[in-house]
């Protein structure tokens, strides 16, 4: 199990592109509920998650996802995203729990990601 925290924020352009890609007609400064997935794909987070899956020949397949919101997240606001990852075996999975806090430490949202790890190549 590993835990790490990251500073995250969303620009207007990022949110606009995300809305366009999900046919989301909403506007305003509130982030789409699934937008935090973009933060999970950032290089720093990816490095943390890849460290949890060092084997070659595995690809993640999304099995489940949840978001719980205490308050909406907004464009331009800076947040602290804390992620805890852990592995499961049989079947192989990577589970990622996250919480998103504001500058005062208030938890605004939580997320859970379940990735099934599928063998697509020969292990090294």
């Amino acid at each position: 199990m590993s835990e790490e925290a990251f500073a995250v924020a969303a620009t207007e352009a990022e949110v606009e592109a995300f809305r366009a890609a999900t046919a989301c007609a909403q506007d305003g400064d509130i982030l789409p509920s699934t937008f935090p997935m973009r933060w999970l794909a950032s290089p720093a987070v990816r490095q943390m998650l890849m460290a949890a899956v060092p084997e070659l020949g595995l690809v993640p397949v999304h099995e489940g996802q949840s978001f719980d919101y205490e308050r909406p997240l907004r464009v331009g606001e800076r947040y602290r995203l804390t992620l805890v990852s852990r592995r499961e075996t049989e079947p192989a999975r990577l589970l990622v729990d996250g919480r998103i806090e504001d500058a005062d430490g208030a938890v605004l949202a939580k997320l859970e990601t379940i990735l099934r790890l599928v063998v697509v190549g020969e292990p090294a």
Partner: peptide, 29 residues
């Protein structure tokens, strides 16, 4: 992407009930 699919849920619900606020969304693919 499963999340491309899931990303469509909030706009769908908002189009139906624009006065409602989403506080939890979960999905099993």
């Amino acid at each position: 992407h499963g999340m491309l699919l899931m990303g469509c849920f909030e706009p769908y619900l908002a189009a139906w009930r624009p006065d409602a606020r989403l506080v939890r969304l979960s999905a099993k693919f």
